[in-house]
Design a protein around this nucleic acid. Structure first.
Lengths: 340, 340
DNA sequence: ATGAAAGCGCTAACAC
DNA sequence: GTGTTAGCGCTTTCAT
C-alpha cells in the first residue's frame, strides 16, 4: 500500500471561514449553530449550507472555553467488563437525549484501584457534573470531588451527595431470606474488597445471619472481577466445612464462585446454592440460570442522568436522594441443602 | 437532607493564580507542568507545591485550543454490552500508558445504527487520531472520516486506511472446516446486518460451503445483539429442514442462537452444534462452553493503540496494515450431527 | 532561566 | 437582525 493515509487533510474550517463565505459576522454563525434567537431564517439556512459545504466542525474545546458554564456530563465507570456499567451508560445516555449535553466517559484502568485518574481526566475536561458509578472509592473521596464538581452517585449512596441507589438492605434481605427459607445454615458471603465504601450488602447479610442464630462468613475478593472471586472462593469451597450456599455481592463475583465450584467438582445448585446481584445478562443465560437480585441498572442510569441535568440547572439545591426497590429473580442456582 | 450539595465550589484555579502565588510568570507554570526544559528545579518544586495547595486543575480545553497539534486519541466503540469492546479498550489503554495522550471514548447509541454521532463528537473534541472499532459503518464512511482525522481500524480492514485486524478468512475456515470434519452438511451462518462493510466471514463461509458441494444458508441478524440473533434464529431452527450446525459471526450472536435453540427444546451440541467468534468471557463460562474463534481482542487493541501513536507522529506515512492469526478454541458446543 | 505578548476558535455582552 | 469587541485559560514563539 502506498496511499498516503493522511491524504488531503488541511487546516480545520472555523466559524470565521463560514462567516466569510456567507458574508456575515462570526457571531451570526455562532448563533445559527446553537439555534439562538435573532437570526433570520434565510441567513440561518445560508450559514448552515455553507458550513456543510466547507466541512465545518464545531470545536468543543473552543466553545467550552469561551462559555462560562460547563454543560458536559462526565460518567465515571469502574469496569467495562461488567455489563452493569453498560446498562448504566445506556440509561444515562437515554436521559440526556440528543440534546445539548455532551456525555464524556471515564473508565478506571484497573477494577481494583481507585479511579482517581479517570475522575481527574473528566474534571480536566471541564465537565459540569460528574456521574460516579464506582464501588472502590471511599465516601471521603467522593465528597472531596464535590468540592470541585457536582457529583451524582449511581447505584451507591453517599450521604450529603446526590445519590440514585437501590435499596441494598431489601435486596440482600430477599436473597438471604430465600436461602434461609430453603433450609441453609452455612451461608457465606462473597464480598468485594474490604477497603470500599459500599458495605450495605455485607452488613445486612451479617445482621441477618446473626439474628437467625447463624455464624456469618464473609470472604472478600481482591477486586470486583470474576477471576478474583474465583481465587477467593477456591479456598472457601475446598475446606471440609464448606458452605452450602453463597450470596455474592454481584453477578460478576457469583460467576467466579460458580467457576470455582465446578472446578472442585461441586454442582450448582445440588452441592452449592448461589445468589448473585444485578440480574445481568450473564445471570439470565441458559446454562447459567443464576438467581439474582435485580437492581434495574438501566433505570438507575436513567434516573442518574436526569438528576445530573437537574443538578446542572440548580447547582445550589440541597442534595437529593432517590432510592428504588430491587427484586429477587429466582432461577435454577438455588435449592435446599444436600441432605448430608 | 439540607446540605447544599454544592458547598463551597468557587472559581477554578488557573495557572495565573499559581504564578501569582509563587511570584513567577504564567509561562513558567505552564512549562513546569509539562516537564519542559528550562525551569530550575527550585522554581519547579515551588510551582508544583503551590498548585497542589491551591487545588489547581489543568484545563484540557484551554490547553487543547492553544496547542497547535491535537494529541488526544479517540476510541469509537460499537456497543458496551459486548465484552470484546472492553477488551479492545483495555488493550488501547495499555498501549497509551499513562503518558501524554488522553483517551476519549465515543460509544454508538444503538448497536444497529451507524455511529456517526459518536464519531462526530470525538472529532469535535479535536482528537489527533481516531481508533474505530465498529462493524456497522460502511467502508466509505470510514474513508470519509479520514479526510478529517487520521483513522486506525481495529478488528476490521479498510483498504487504504490503517488497519489492525485478524485474519477472518483463516478463522472462518478453521470453524467451518471443523464442522465439516464432524460430518455436518446443513451448516448455517448467523451473520450481522446486511448493510455492513465487514463481510469476510460470511463470504468465506459461502465459498467453503460451495466448494464442499453444500448449500450456504446465511441468516442476517438485524443488529449485533444477542436478542436480534435470537429472533432471527427462531425461524431458522423451527423449520423442518433446520441446520445441524450454526457458525455465528460472533459470540454475541452465537448466544442468541443458543437461546433460541434451547427455547425450542433443542440441545447443544446434541441437536445443534454451535461456533462463535471472539472467544469472549461468555464463551468460556462453564455451562456455556462455546467453541469459538479467538481473535485476541486485547492484543488487537494494544496494536491499535500503538499504531495510533505512530500515526500521530507520522501523519503522512503510508497506510499500514497488521494482520494477526486467530485460532479456534474447541469446547463443548460442537459434536457430530445426530444420526437421524 | 525567565518573561512578554500573540493568538487558538469560540461565546456573550453590548451596541447599532 | 446584525456586527463589534472582549475575553475564556492555555501554549508558544521570541526576547531578555
Amino acid at each position: 500500500m502506498s496511499f498516503p493515509a493522511a491524504s488531503g487533510r488541511r487546516r480545520p474550517v472555523t466559524q470565521e471561514d463560514v462567516a466569510r463565505a456567507v458574508g456575515v459576522s462570526r457571531t451570526l454563525v455562532s448563533f445559527a449553530f446553537r439555534g439562538a434567537p435573532g437570526v433570520s431564517p434565510e441567513t440561518r439556512d445560508a450559514i448552515l449550507e455553507a458550513a456543510r459545504r466547507l466541512g465545518y466542525r464545531h470545536n468543543v474545546l473552543a466553545a467550552g472555553l469561551a462559555s462560562k458554564r460547563a454543560s458536559a456530563v462526565g460518567l465515571y465507570l469502574l469496569d467495562l467488563h461488567n455489563e452493569v456499567y453498560a446498562d448504566i451508560f445506556a440509561g444515562v445516555s437515554e436521559a440526556l437525549g440528543d440534546g445539548a449535553h455532551r456525555l464524556i466517559l471515564g473508565v478506571t484502568d484497573s477494577p481494583s484501584g481507585s479511579g482517581r485518574a479517570a475522575a481527574d481526566s473528566l474534571i480536566e475536561a471541564r465537565i459540569g457534573v460528574l456521574i460516579a458509578a464506582t464501588l472502590t472509592d471511599p465516601d471521603a473521596y467522593i465528597r472531596e470531588l464535590t468540592q470541585t464538581v457536582p457529583v451524582v452517585n449511581v447505584a451507591r449512596r453517599v450521604p450529603g451527595v446526590d445519590s440514585i441507589y437501590s435499596d441494598d438492605r431489601a435486596g440482600t434481605s430477599a436473597a438471604v431470606s430465600h436461602l434461609l427459607g430453603l433450609g441453609h445454615t452455612r451461608i457465606a458471603h462473597m464480598a468485594g474488597p474490604p477497603h470500599e465504601g459500599h458495605l450495605e450488602r455485607r452488613r445486612t447479610y451479617e445482621r441477618l445471619m446473626v439474628s437467625a442464630g447463624l455464624e456469618p462468613r464473609v470472604v472478600p475478593a481482591q477486586d470486583y472481577t470474576q477471576e478474583a472471586a474465583e481465587r477467593a472462593a477456591h479456598a472457601l469451597l475446598a475446606a471440609p466445612e464448606r458452605p452450602t450456599a453463597v450470596f455474592a455481592h454481584n453477578d460478576e463475583l457469583a460467576l467466579g464462585v460458580r467457576e470455582a465450584a465446578y472446578a472442585l467438582g461441586l454442582r450448582v445448585p445440588q452441592d452449592l446454592s448461589l445468589i448473585g446481584y444485578d440480574n445481568s445478562r450473564l445471570a439470565r443465560l441458559r446454562g447459567i440460570d443464576l438467581t439474582s437480585v435485580d437492581l434495574h441498572a438501566r433505570d438507575l442510569g436513567k434516573a442518574a442522568g436526569e438528576a445530573a441535568l437537574e443538578r446542572l440547572a440548580q447547582p445550589e439545591a440541597p442534595a437529593m436522594e432517590r432510592r428504588s426497590e430491587p427484586h429477587l429473580v429466582l432461577r435454577a442456582s438455588t435449592a435446599g441443602p444436600a441432605s448430608s
